[in-house]
Structures are given as C-alpha cells and as structure tokens.
Amino acid sequence: MSIDSMFVHKMWDDHELSKMVDGGVPFPMLSDAGGTIGTMYGVYDAEAGVENRGRFLIDPDGVVQGFEVLTPPVGRNVGETLRQIQAYQLVRESEGSQATPSGWRPGKQTLSPGPDLVGNVWKEWKTSMAFD
C-alpha cells in the first residue's frame, strides 16, 4: 500500500515489477490517497507526504501480532517476516502450549511454558541457538 493511485500501481507493475516477478505482483497493490490509512497505522509521514516501510502481521482474528517500521532507504527482510508468520502459526496451532524462543526457525526446538520451565530455560535453550 502506498499513496499512489491504482493507475500508477498498474504502470509500475507493467513496466518494472513484472520484469522481476513472472505475471507481476500476485497480491493487491492498494492505494492510500492522502495517507488516511497510513495515518491510522502510524506510518504516514505527513511532512514528506509518503508512507514509511511499515509491515503489519495480522492473524485470522484480525489481531495485530507484530509490526516493523523502517524509514525509506532501508529495505525489509522478507525472510524474517516469513519466520515470524511460521512462529505465530505454530503457537496458534498449539493453542499457546508452545512458545518459540529467540532464533527459532521451523524444525528448531520450541519451549513449553509452565511451572517446570521456570528457572530451567538454560537446560533447554543455549545462547548459540539465538543465531542461525
């Protein structure tokens, strides 16, 4: 979503993005004229007249689980977004019985929060596991 019109979105997709992605961008490119939606989400920079790079993760109940906002010159890490979605999906499927510690990736160990884990995380999880 950006402040550009849907017509400009089409031109960008036709002339540039479709050269990077076969068939063009596969999801809706939305128009936020005037930044009203961006203002609601706290990412619209009224002085510059543009949106910052906000990324919001919204669960099936419509609840925001996480977000990240970057100023324009630095791009996002899509891999990290996917990792967070995978982690939240695991937590949701486990109905809260599992939590994903720092550095978790699919296949890595999860934690089961509860009385037995109090003071015992050090037995389950090592600091080296925070890194890839």
Partner: peptide, 11 residues
C-alpha cells in the same frame, strides 16, 4: 493471515 505492507511510493 495477512501481511500488510506500506511503502514510500511506486518506482
């Protein structure tokens, strides 16, 4: 699940 992304502008 929805990922909502804002960006500064086309091009």
């Amino acid at each position: 699940w929805v990922v909502l992304c804002f960006y500064p502008g086309d091009f």
